[in-house]
Amino acid sequence: MIETKHVDFYYSSFHALKNISMMMEERTVTALIGPSGCGKSTFLRLFNRMNDLIDDTRVSGECLIDGEDIYSKSVAVDELRKRVGMVFQKPNPFPKSIFENVAYGLRVNGTRDRSFIARRVEDSLRAAALWEEVKDKLRESAFALSGGQQQRLCIARALAVSPSVLLMDEPASALDPISTSKIEELIASLKQDYTIVIVTHNMQQAARVSDKTGFFMMGELVEFGDTKKIFSDPVNEQTRNYVNGRFG
């Protein structure tokens, strides 16, 4: 379970997130939507502390995963990131073989057991619905795969370290429609085991894959609720305009 309480976030003097309180339940898909620059990606990157990589940023409020404040001093960031996986907007496989891409997280974890690694790689590729396509060419470069396959490889890579949360930052925006629908099917099946938070620009996608939807604008969480409700009968006027495609 992910919970934020009165979270504010600043890029030096720019107030990027304003007093966000939100709760995402286990084994659900939460979609974050909103116009460009609204803060939804920044919000997503709070949960694996990816924003730490940017100089001169500041966060206040509470950000809890399974009840633990992930911004407290006692949290080791690399341990946190093993529990909270991330899939990026553009597929970003390493310039290594397909097998080594998936095994990477295990190797940096210090896992040496070869048969265990091989099993985890297969399981992860199966979970990412990629196994059948790549099982005969695990030693080939990941760049030999198509864009959609690369993105599923990145999902498999994130799954290999057994996270409980999966963050997805517009995972299908760089893909063609067929690859996109495969990713969406995948999200639906991954929901059974993972808590998923997905940022998307694509309204239909949010409607198709998510249980809950949060609408962001200018750093504020304008409305948050069941996806069906947000798309059919939102409370807020701005939400209605946005989901109906009037702006954004």
């Binding site: 990816m50 990131r81 990026f88 970003n92």
Partner: peptide
């Protein structure tokens, strides 16, 4: 980012 996000 890919590497760091995997806990490296």
């Amino acid at each position: 980012e890919a590497s760091l996000a995997l806990g490296a």
